[in-house]
Design a protein around this nucleic acid. Structure first.
Lengths: 345, 345
DNA sequence: TTAATGAACTTTACCGTTTAAGTAAACTAG
DNA sequence: CTAGTTTACTTAAACGGTAAAGTTCATTAA
């Protein structure tokens, strides 16, 4: 790479000190209008670009946010990142994006690296694997602004932005019940992951609401991927239990269940309603699973970036406040409606 | 944020100079094993973390790559970013991700910002709107390593990694022809965008191959979103032309066409085969469009990151070489096959 | 025995920028 | 007319780290 023009280079050419150049370019009152003009012209001429790294070193602010997502090639997280970008951009922040790949040690490495890079704050969605919170304790000690999104660790004092999973689950059971389902199974996530736990709690509360029995054989705990949905359904089915509705903890799980169902007996597709958390990412042209709980990743991204930046700027404090993003049930049977909303994008 | 421990802090505590501490921690031979041990212990104790920004300033390398994508909440680009991440991670590089939102001036701003941030190289997928290449000329002048991916500007000397769109289009026509299509329409992208242009060229070559006429009323130029697919199909149809196959420039376009088709007359869904570039992002459970050209974003991301890092390390030079990523046609009618591949993820 | 060698440090200087603290000349007020 | 203020700069110091060039003292080779 070619050597870059620095303040000093300009200073020498103009016979001024580098500080004067710095001030001129930052429109500091110390410098005369006349000089400022000349400096600006020469700076442009010489292709001067401020070295933001050097600036960060003095200003102790990098105008940079560290983001850690468990996955990026995953519609929901891609959306969240888009939302973060949108807000960060308007505030002149840049994003250093890292992916934990649901791996605790990766997550840890990234956190350390980001902190070492002097990001002004962190946005993290905790990996499913994470059990050891030491690193987060450390982050709290060094008091770096941090906002959790989607997957948080409650009770640590960090603010977080999440889906109101419990409420959404209750709503989901409501919805299925109102469509005639009396035996609703739940393909649940891991119970130690907050979303898994909450979705399950909501599911149980929803059943209670209608005096439906909570039957353990109707709850399969597992992961969030297609594989678990597939295996989960087969497991339920092999037990001889016949659900008429399924609440799946994620779209892939619902998808896996659907595949399994089709494999077992295509007729089931008409008799079992599947409702999943999260959509496929293509705005509603998937025929099955038909219903899903729409979670606005964009909104979540924006909100969390907003909170983080406010925290960085000292406008708010980390108080362990949980902000909820609303969820609504979408019926993909009604494609044209969903599409109409998307046509203008 | 709490004040961070620096080399100097450790130095004072130990009664050594900061340079010795620096050397000790970097395992420099100048320092005795004994001292090194003590330094390491104390450093850990005091919670010392090197300030990477300061380090970058001297080393003139930030171990950071700037990435510019037109969209992020878009399966293909999310995949590419995942691929970039994967490779960059193994090489200890971090990613500063920016989104141009298909906007020329945004793109320009991001490039300037990233350069100012002293990223070691740039990975860019050019926005659809971009007509003015000045900024890229500048990048070439300052000789910053840059690799284009997916959307490139040929003839500028930068290396790029793209889909072999022309070949893929020819293959696509082949495929449709072999399934009996004789009147294949093309919902094309903009002709000034390289992928739009190439896909169209391939489409025409494909038709020529089978002596099918190239009929301008069967080619609708437009964007890459659902809206254009929808409008495009309606336009073709309103002209009284009845295609039996459609090659759509992107999945959303194919999707829009499908919706339009269904609106016009559901029977068409059985008589018109749609083949799209790119998939929906959910691994094959969309019933329509049934066929798509699979583009491995992950692979593209990996390859471009690899090229860029090699260029940064001086192993290769920018020579305007175009690297092609292969494409294959997927039939979503055969769901279980596709899924089987995904179950292990 | 003495100069060269090596081990284990320290000092100086620099990366590019900013902030704080000068300084000289011109301007203003009493 | 002189002291005080302004204007338009400059110099010094700092941010946290690294590289290069000393410096000491102990050891080794001739």
């Amino acid at each position: 790479m070619k050597k870059k023009t620095t303040l000093n280079d300009i200073a020498h050419r103009m016979g001024l000190s580098k500080v004067s150049i710095s001030k001129a370019l930052r429109n500091h009152p110390d410098i005369s209008e006349n000089t400022k003009k000349k400096v600006r012209v020469l700076a442009k001429d010489m292709g001067y670009r401020p070295n933001l790294i050097a600036r960060s070193l003095t200003s102790a602010s990098s105008k940079t946010l560290g983001v850690i997502v468990p996955k990026i090639a995953h519609n929901f997280f891609a959306q969240v990142v888009a939302g973060i970008q949108q807000y960060a951009n308007t505030m002149e922040y840049e994003i250093v994006l890292t992916v934990s790949d649901e791996n605790e040690s990766q997550e840890q490495k990234h956190i350390e690296r980001l902190v070492a890079m002097q990001v002004d704050g962190l946005l993290v969605s905790v990996s499913m694997e994470t059990r050891n919170y030491e690193i987060f304790n450390w982050l709290q000690e060094i008091q770096i602004p941090l906002v959790f999104f989607d997957r948080h660790i409650p009770g640590m004092g960090f603010n977080s932005v999440i889906i109101d999973d419990e409420a959404a689950s209750i709503e989901a059971v409501d919805f299925l019940f109102n469509r005639g389902c009396k035996k609703i199974a739940h393909l649940a996530g891991y119970n130690h992951v907050s979303i898994g736990h909450k979705r399950r709690m909501g599911y149980e509360k929803g059943l209670n609401k209608y005096d439906l029995p909570v039957d353990d054989s109707m709850i399969i705990e597992g992961g969030f991927s297609e594989k678990f949905g597939y295996q989960g359904f087969k497991k339920i089915y092999s037990q001889g239990v016949k659900p008429d509705g399924i609440l799946a903890v994620s779209f892939p799980v619902g998808l896996g269940a659907y595949i399994a169902m089709r494999e077992v007996n295509p007729i089931l597709m008409e008799n079992i309603q599947i409702l999943t958390f999260g959509d496929s990412g293509i705005g509603g042209v998937v025929s099955y699973p038909q219903y899903y709980l729409d979670q606005s990743g964009i909104e979540m991204g924006r909100r969390s970036a907003e909170l983080l930046i406010k925290e960085i700027q000292g406008e708010i404090k980390p108080e362990g406040i949980i902000h909820f993003i609303e969820t609504r049930i979408i019926d993909t049977g009604n494609i044209s409606l969903v599409l109409a909303e998307n046509l203008d994008k």
